[in-house]
Write a protein that binds this DNA or RNA. Sequence first.
DNA 1: AATAATTTTTAGACTTGCCTAAAAATATTT
DNA 2: AAATATTTTTAGGCAAGTCTAAAAATTATT
Lengths: 218, 218
Amino acid sequence: MISHAEENYLKAIFKISEKEAKAASTNAIAAELQTTAASVTDMLKRLAEKNLIAYEKYRGVELSGEGNRLATALIRKHRLWEVFLVEKLGFAWDEVHDLAEQLEHVQGDDLVDRLDNFLGHPKFDPHGDPIPDAQGRWAFRPQSLLATLKPGDRGVVTGVDDHSAAFLQYLDQLGLTLGAQLELIERIPYDQSLRIRTQDGREITLSEKVGHNLFVKI
Amino acid sequence: MISHAEENYLKAIFKISEKEAKAASTNAIAAELQTTAASVTDMLKRLAEKNLIAYEKYRGVELSGEGNRLATALIRKHRLWEVFLVEKLGFAWDEVHDLAEQLEHVQGDDLVDRLDNFLGHPKFDPHGDPIPDAQGRWAFRPQSLLATLKPGDRGVVTGVDDHSAAFLQYLDQLGLTLGAQLELIERIPYDQSLRIRTQDGREITLSEKVGHNLFVKI
DNA sequence: AATAATTTTTAGACTTGCCTAAAAATATTT
DNA sequence: AAATATTTTTAGGCAAGTCTAAAAATTATT
């Protein structure tokens, strides 16, 4: 049996490995989970003992096959619950993270698969993140950071890199939710600000930071 | 903040107090939660400390107003999730208890009320148990144990006292699910067995035990 | 009312998961 | 390469929640 705490560590390690493409460090895990390096070291020993990670002192960790399988299942659960909360219960996309964080730990034989079925097998969650299927396969969808578009390029908002409520609410306010169309007018050389036209013809200026946190499909 | 373990104790005390109409004993709580009397004593001290129960050594416990409020909210959550699992995800009534036991601990501002709304404000769960509303008010529905009917009485199955999977599956097999109509033909004096006629005209014999665990509305 | 049986509590220990402070190892600078 | 800075681990401790075994209190029996 695996505890909630252990599950959270696996997910954190998965998340870090995904970005960094190298072994996850103790400090990175501590930062991700808002805990201390000492606590992380404690837990890494336990996870290594259970063969869920490959751990070498001072060298960081990587998930084992089983650890990867568990982390993927957890992300699947998290994202399916997010879809449920938004699509069925009417929560906003910036309100669902903490709830899904709890719901993903609910254990039950075919709960996830029934939920998946009930929701119509969604491939992406309310933030545009892919939902792995029951076999752990990830959907792929070509997308680019808004910051990489060239003036004149048109795109559709497909996801976010920053999942903070502050960013999501700002996007709501701008009308830049998933599916919104936009066109890059120009990039200001001085500070890399981006002038875009929205689908209803408004022209708005976005900071470089926004450009690096918004995914669009060209 | 209240822990999952504390919540489970409150629910157990509520359940026992409901039946016994007197202070819940340490042993009764231990039996309900499948733990030891020593563990219960430990926890009772903590709950008393938090003013969730009135606890006097060797004298059993009763819920405080706040304890009662929390236990009621918990039962509300549990039963709403059971409705969700059966109505929306298609689980059988004997499969949902353990899942709801986990889901009831999920904390979130208006999650329960949104769920309640999504489900159409059900008044009873899949086992016929009442679901308290957001203000903690209980629906009442007159019902009697099948064992108390007189020959010739007709009734509709409205609930069960025994929630075990074995009993629920047996009822499924007999076709005696919620809403099923039946008529008591006779009570066998020898062993209090009950001969009933089902709505499709079958005559079946039920043990005294079944008679004491099935609720019907006459 | 005294003894026996039962229930409840206390005492002490264990695991999980977390912490701080100090030590050890690794990485970076000069 | 030596000194410094950073990262990671160890050591020791704490709280929650559980356990067993023993002591204390209550209840039942004779």
